[in-house]
Protein backbone atom coordinates (compact mmCIF):
# COMPACT_ATOMS: atom_id res chain seq x y z
CA UNK A 1 0.00 0.00 0.00
CA UNK A 2 1.15 3.52 -0.82
CA UNK A 3 0.42 6.49 1.38
CA UNK A 4 0.95 10.06 0.18
CA UNK A 5 1.31 12.81 2.76
CA UNK A 6 1.31 16.40 1.48
CA UNK A 7 3.06 18.80 3.87
CA UNK A 8 3.32 22.58 4.09
CA UNK A 9 6.09 24.82 5.38
CA UNK A 10 4.54 27.36 7.78
CA UNK A 11 5.77 30.02 10.20
CA UNK A 12 6.43 28.55 13.65
CA UNK A 13 2.93 28.26 15.16
CA UNK A 14 4.21 29.44 18.54
CA UNK A 15 5.86 32.60 17.20
CA UNK A 16 4.09 35.94 17.19
CA UNK A 17 4.11 37.47 13.73
CA UNK A 18 2.83 40.85 12.60
CA UNK A 19 1.93 42.40 9.27
CA UNK A 20 4.47 44.81 7.73
CA UNK A 21 3.52 48.43 8.47
CA UNK A 22 2.29 48.97 4.88
CA UNK A 23 0.11 45.83 5.03
CA UNK A 24 1.84 44.30 2.00
CA UNK A 25 2.99 41.14 3.71
CA UNK A 26 4.09 39.47 6.90
CA UNK A 27 7.04 40.65 8.93
CA UNK A 28 8.64 37.24 9.34
CA UNK A 29 11.99 38.73 10.40
CA UNK A 30 13.88 36.02 12.24
CA UNK A 31 10.86 33.78 12.78
CA UNK A 32 11.54 30.08 12.26
CA UNK A 33 9.59 27.83 9.94
CA UNK A 34 8.34 24.34 10.61
CA UNK A 35 6.09 21.63 9.22
CA UNK A 36 2.42 22.57 9.67
CA UNK A 37 1.48 20.80 12.95
CA UNK A 38 -1.52 19.04 11.41
CA UNK A 39 0.70 17.71 8.61
CA UNK A 40 3.13 16.47 11.24
CA UNK A 41 0.26 14.48 12.75
CA UNK A 42 -0.40 13.06 9.24
CA UNK A 43 3.26 12.08 8.79
CA UNK A 44 3.33 10.47 12.25
CA UNK A 45 0.19 8.47 11.45
CA UNK A 46 1.56 7.25 8.11
CA UNK A 47 4.84 6.24 9.77
CA UNK A 48 2.96 4.33 12.48
CA UNK A 49 1.06 2.46 9.74
CA UNK A 50 4.39 1.62 8.14
CA UNK A 51 5.84 0.45 11.44
CA UNK A 52 2.88 -1.92 11.84
CA UNK A 53 3.10 -3.09 8.22
CA UNK A 54 6.55 -2.62 6.62
CA UNK A 55 5.14 -3.18 3.12
CA UNK A 56 3.53 0.27 3.36
CA UNK A 57 5.43 2.91 1.41
CA UNK A 58 5.17 6.52 2.59
CA UNK A 59 5.87 9.43 0.25
CA UNK A 60 5.77 13.04 1.40
CA UNK A 61 5.26 15.90 -1.02
CA UNK A 62 5.49 19.64 -0.66
CA UNK A 63 4.77 22.40 -3.15
CA UNK A 64 6.85 25.54 -2.85
CA UNK A 65 10.33 27.03 -2.99
CA UNK A 66 13.65 25.23 -2.49
CA UNK A 67 13.46 26.07 1.24
CA UNK A 68 10.66 23.49 1.66
CA UNK A 69 13.38 20.82 1.41
CA UNK A 70 14.02 21.47 5.13
CA UNK A 71 10.47 20.39 6.03
CA UNK A 72 10.60 17.40 3.68
CA UNK A 73 13.83 16.27 5.38
CA UNK A 74 12.10 16.47 8.74
CA UNK A 75 9.27 14.29 7.41
CA UNK A 76 11.88 11.79 6.17
CA UNK A 77 13.41 11.83 9.64
CA UNK A 78 10.02 10.81 11.03
CA UNK A 79 10.33 7.70 8.88
CA UNK A 80 8.80 8.53 5.49
CA UNK A 81 10.46 6.60 2.64
CA UNK A 82 10.84 9.31 0.04
CA UNK A 83 10.08 12.93 -0.63
CA UNK A 84 8.97 14.92 -3.66
CA UNK A 85 9.31 18.68 -3.96
CA UNK A 86 7.15 20.34 -6.59
CA UNK A 87 9.40 23.35 -6.90
CA UNK A 88 7.75 26.69 -7.60
CA UNK A 89 7.65 30.27 -6.41
CA UNK A 90 4.32 30.97 -8.10
CA UNK A 91 1.55 32.54 -6.04
CA UNK A 92 -0.79 29.79 -4.81
CA UNK A 93 -4.10 29.37 -3.07
CA UNK A 94 -5.82 26.13 -2.02
CA UNK A 95 -7.23 25.61 -5.53
CA UNK A 96 -3.73 25.63 -7.04
CA UNK A 97 -2.42 23.33 -4.31
CA UNK A 98 -5.30 20.88 -4.87
CA UNK A 99 -4.77 20.96 -8.65
CA UNK A 100 -1.04 20.30 -8.34
CA UNK A 101 -1.62 17.57 -5.76
CA UNK A 102 -4.13 15.95 -8.10
CA UNK A 103 -1.32 15.68 -10.68
CA UNK A 104 1.02 14.16 -8.07
CA UNK A 105 -1.66 11.62 -7.11
CA UNK A 106 -2.12 10.62 -10.77
CA UNK A 107 1.66 10.21 -11.03
CA UNK A 108 2.20 8.17 -7.82
CA UNK A 109 -1.13 6.31 -7.49
CA UNK A 110 -1.36 6.24 -3.70
CA UNK A 111 -4.12 4.24 -1.98
CA UNK A 112 -4.46 6.81 0.74
CA UNK A 113 -3.80 10.55 0.91
CA UNK A 114 -3.34 11.70 4.49
CA UNK A 115 -3.04 15.43 5.14
CA UNK A 116 -3.58 18.12 7.75
CA UNK A 117 -7.09 19.53 8.19
CA UNK A 118 -5.74 23.06 7.93
CA UNK A 119 -2.47 24.95 7.78
CA UNK A 120 -1.79 27.06 10.84
CA UNK A 121 -0.68 30.03 8.70
CA UNK A 122 -3.62 30.66 6.39
CA UNK A 123 -6.11 28.61 8.46
CA UNK A 124 -8.08 27.79 5.29
CA UNK A 125 -9.19 24.18 5.83
CA UNK A 126 -9.81 23.68 2.08
CA UNK A 127 -7.08 21.81 0.21
CA UNK A 128 -7.91 18.26 1.34
CA UNK A 129 -11.60 18.48 0.49
CA UNK A 130 -10.85 20.18 -2.86
CA UNK A 131 -8.37 17.44 -3.74
CA UNK A 132 -10.84 14.67 -2.81
CA UNK A 133 -13.46 16.38 -5.01
CA UNK A 134 -11.08 16.60 -7.98
CA UNK A 135 -10.11 12.94 -7.61
CA UNK A 136 -13.71 11.83 -7.04
CA UNK A 137 -12.54 10.01 -3.89
CA UNK A 138 -14.42 9.61 -0.63
CA UNK A 139 -13.17 11.85 2.18
CA UNK A 140 -13.06 11.81 5.94
CA UNK A 141 -12.00 15.11 7.48
CA UNK A 142 -11.03 15.81 11.13
CA UNK A 143 -9.87 12.24 11.80
CA UNK A 144 -9.12 11.16 15.37
CA UNK A 145 -8.68 7.44 14.56
CA UNK A 146 -7.80 5.60 11.35
CA UNK A 147 -7.87 1.86 10.66
CA UNK A 148 -6.88 0.68 7.22
CA UNK A 149 -7.93 -2.85 6.24
CA UNK A 150 -7.66 -4.61 2.92
CA UNK A 151 -9.11 -2.16 0.44
CA UNK A 152 -11.06 -0.21 3.03
CA UNK A 153 -10.56 2.45 5.67
CA UNK A 154 -12.52 3.08 8.81
CA UNK A 155 -12.14 6.58 10.21
CA UNK A 156 -13.49 8.04 13.43
CA UNK A 157 -13.86 11.78 12.90
CA UNK A 158 -14.60 14.66 15.23
CA UNK A 159 -17.80 16.56 14.48
CA UNK A 160 -19.46 19.73 15.77
CA UNK A 161 -21.33 17.65 18.32
CA UNK A 162 -19.22 14.55 19.03
CA UNK A 163 -17.75 11.87 16.78
CA UNK A 164 -18.84 9.64 13.93
CA UNK A 165 -17.36 6.65 12.12
CA UNK A 166 -17.07 6.56 8.33
CA UNK A 167 -16.18 3.51 6.26
CA UNK A 168 -14.81 3.96 2.77
CA UNK A 169 -13.15 2.00 0.03
CA UNK A 170 -9.59 2.87 -0.88
CA UNK A 171 -8.40 5.04 -2.47
CA UNK A 172 -9.61 7.74 -0.13
CA UNK A 173 -8.50 11.00 1.44
CA UNK A 174 -8.30 11.64 5.17
CA UNK A 175 -7.50 14.91 6.96
CA UNK A 176 -6.07 14.84 10.46
CA UNK A 177 -7.19 16.51 13.67
CA UNK A 178 -5.32 17.06 16.94
CA UNK A 179 -6.45 13.92 18.73
CA UNK A 180 -5.24 11.47 16.07
CA UNK A 181 -1.81 11.05 17.66
CA UNK A 182 1.01 12.89 19.35
CA UNK A 183 3.93 13.18 16.92
CA UNK A 184 7.24 11.84 18.20
CA UNK A 185 10.13 14.13 18.95
CA UNK A 186 12.62 14.35 16.10
CA UNK A 187 16.17 15.03 17.31
CA UNK A 188 18.48 16.98 15.03
CA UNK A 189 20.77 14.00 14.24
CA UNK A 190 17.72 12.21 12.88
CA UNK A 191 17.15 15.02 10.40
CA UNK A 192 20.81 14.87 9.38
CA UNK A 193 20.67 11.07 8.89
CA UNK A 194 17.57 11.51 6.74
CA UNK A 195 19.79 13.26 4.18
CA UNK A 196 20.54 9.90 2.60
CA UNK A 197 16.88 9.22 1.84
CA UNK A 198 15.63 9.99 -1.69
CA UNK A 199 14.28 13.48 -2.34
CA UNK A 200 13.35 14.35 -5.91
CA UNK A 201 12.44 17.69 -7.36
CA UNK A 202 10.06 18.32 -10.20
CA UNK A 203 8.42 21.39 -11.75
CA UNK A 204 4.69 22.12 -11.55
CA UNK A 205 2.56 19.87 -13.73
CA UNK A 206 -0.26 22.35 -14.37
CA UNK A 207 -0.65 26.03 -15.13
CA UNK A 208 -3.56 26.51 -12.71
CA UNK A 209 -3.92 30.12 -11.57
CA UNK A 210 -5.05 31.09 -8.06
CA UNK A 211 -8.70 32.06 -7.67
CA UNK A 212 -8.12 34.18 -4.60
CA UNK A 213 -5.34 36.52 -3.59
CA UNK A 214 -4.48 38.33 -0.40
CA UNK A 215 -4.40 42.06 -1.09
CA UNK A 216 -3.70 43.38 2.40
CA UNK A 217 -2.76 42.29 5.90
CA UNK A 218 -3.69 44.20 9.05
CA UNK A 219 -3.38 43.74 12.78
CA UNK A 220 -6.74 43.21 14.44
CA UNK A 221 -7.88 46.10 16.64
CA UNK A 222 -6.46 45.61 20.16
CA UNK A 223 -8.89 44.85 23.00
CA UNK A 224 -9.24 47.79 25.38
CA UNK A 225 -7.06 47.22 28.46
CA UNK A 226 -8.79 45.50 31.36
CA UNK A 227 -8.02 45.50 35.05
CA UNK A 228 -7.39 43.11 37.89
CA UNK A 229 -9.94 42.71 40.66
CA UNK A 230 -8.97 41.75 44.21
CA UNK A 231 -11.73 39.34 45.18
CA UNK A 232 -14.76 37.44 43.97
CA UNK A 233 -17.01 40.12 45.50
CA UNK A 234 -15.22 42.80 43.52
CA UNK A 235 -15.57 40.67 40.39
CA UNK A 236 -19.32 40.26 40.89
CA UNK A 237 -19.69 44.02 41.42
CA UNK A 238 -17.67 44.75 38.28
CA UNK A 239 -19.74 42.34 36.19
CA UNK A 240 -22.99 43.86 37.52
CA UNK A 241 -21.74 47.32 36.65
CA UNK A 242 -20.80 46.15 33.15
CA UNK A 243 -24.33 44.77 32.77
CA UNK A 244 -23.30 41.22 31.87
CA UNK A 245 -24.93 39.47 34.81
Amino acid sequence: MNVLVPIKRVVDPYARVKPLPDGSGLDVGSVKFDVNPFDEIAVEEAVRMKEADPSIHVTVVSIGGAECEEQLRKALAYGADEAVLVETNDPMDSTVVATELEAVVRQLNPDLVLMGKQATDDDCNQAGQMLAAKLGWPQATFACKIEVGSGTARVVRETDTGEETLEMNLPCLVTTDLRLNEPRYIPLPGIVRARTKPLSKQPRATSAQPKTRVTRLDSPPPRPAGRKVGSVDELVAALRERGVL
Binding site: P13, T120, D122, T215, R216, S219
Partner: peptide, 16 residues
Protein backbone atom coordinates in the same frame (compact mmCIF):
# COMPACT_ATOMS: atom_id res chain seq x y z
CA UNK B 1 -10.76 36.82 7.29
CA UNK B 2 -8.46 36.08 10.22
CA UNK B 3 -5.27 34.10 9.58
CA UNK B 4 -2.40 32.78 11.74
CA UNK B 5 -4.61 32.04 14.74
CA UNK B 6 -6.42 35.36 14.45
CA UNK B 7 -3.27 37.43 14.95
CA UNK B 8 -3.58 38.92 11.45
CA UNK B 9 -6.58 40.02 9.37
CA UNK B 10 -6.22 39.27 5.66
CA UNK B 11 -8.16 41.01 2.92
CA UNK B 12 -8.87 38.38 0.27
CA UNK B 13 -9.88 39.20 -3.26
CA UNK B 14 -11.73 36.53 -5.24
CA UNK B 15 -10.84 36.28 -8.92
CA UNK B 16 -13.30 33.64 -10.14
Amino acid sequence: RPIIAGTVLATVETMA
